[in-house]
Design a protein around this nucleic acid. Sequence first.
DNA 1: GATAATAGGGAATGATCGTTTCCGAATAAA
DNA 2: TTTATTCGGAAACGATCATTCCCTATTATC
Lengths: 184, 184
Amino acid sequence: MDTALDRAVRVFCERGYHATSIGDLTAAMRLATGSVYKAFRDKQAVFLAAFERYATVRREQTRSAAARGANGRERLRHMLLSYVEHSQGIEGRRGCIVVGGAVELAALDPEVRARVNAQLETNESFIAGLIREGQADGSIPRHVDADDTARLMICITQGMRVVGKARLPLDGERLVGVALKLLA
Amino acid sequence: MDTALDRAVRVFCERGYHATSIGDLTAAMRLATGSVYKAFRDKQAVFLAAFERYATVRREQTRSAAARGANGRERLRHMLLSYVEHSQGIEGRRGCIVVGGAVELAALDPEVRARVNAQLETNESFIAGLIREGQADGSIPRHVDADDTARLMICITQGMRVVGKARLPLDGERLVGVALKLLA
DNA sequence: GATAATAGGGAATGATCGTTTCCGAATAAA
DNA sequence: TTTATTCGGAAACGATCATTCCCTATTATC
């Protein structure tokens, strides 16, 4: 059931993997323990399913945000604004399962680290693609190094999730206004 | 004993709070359980002490790195290079107790969130100070918004810790070369 | 020399954990 | 109508958890 998994996503985002018990999961998913273990092999399998669900949803949201721009630069700007929006306020405090996975599990669980890396690299490729698109349509200068800039922007996006989780305020227009200097 | 606490720092950085048991701590600190509870009220108190110890050491390292620069811009450049260095390779994989605290505990423990925020704001003030110093000595243009840029740079530094933990390679010269565009 | 205080250590304790097992109800098939 | 299968649920299980309690050795004081 997708709604049960969506609820699992939320609990893992908020509490992280280790601080979420099977009891927390069953309460959130509105299933009993036996049912969870019929649907998933173990707790790690629930986490991986939640991770993939979250990654899919966020990828859709990121692409939708980018689609609002008329050229490469604008598409990247909308994408970054969307990231800030997801990093602050109530949703920002809920956290990001990718960042949580990286910080909590990457050192302890190769499977999770592989998923985290795949997700980061997918995002990075998308950003680099937008930069190249901007260079093709003239909205971004050709001397901008797409790959290095994309790598730095990945750091910015993950960092915004950390800072947002700590509840420091993030002003989208101001932050993205500064960030776009990277495209000069 | 500072060396025991240093070892506690390392275990908390690598495994995080929840995945580190008292047994892991006693093994790392080379103390017995009773000794740990004689020195600290509870597990959270050990974490907070380790957090402050880590923050103190990192603040020193950051200031030392910045001191290598001859002007504001160069000082900031050295500071960022130092951050990249700490974010990649073996130390990068070990992780950062501040990022771990933000991601794992900020939602669950107001005390930890307060310490995380204090640390982030201290770093941010330091960066803003370097930017203002650069504006005073002419190495950074006056139109650069020190506060907004500092806030974005905090996101970059925390993000680098996340990306480094996930073991994506971070090239200091290339990343910082791009990042310094923020000072244009 | 005896007693008290201090320091360090490790087992015991009660609670919680993740996972397995078993139960009862509902549905499907013979 | 009977039997088998499926589904959802909750208790049981063994392990691990954080914390407390008790023991022993060493040092300090009288």
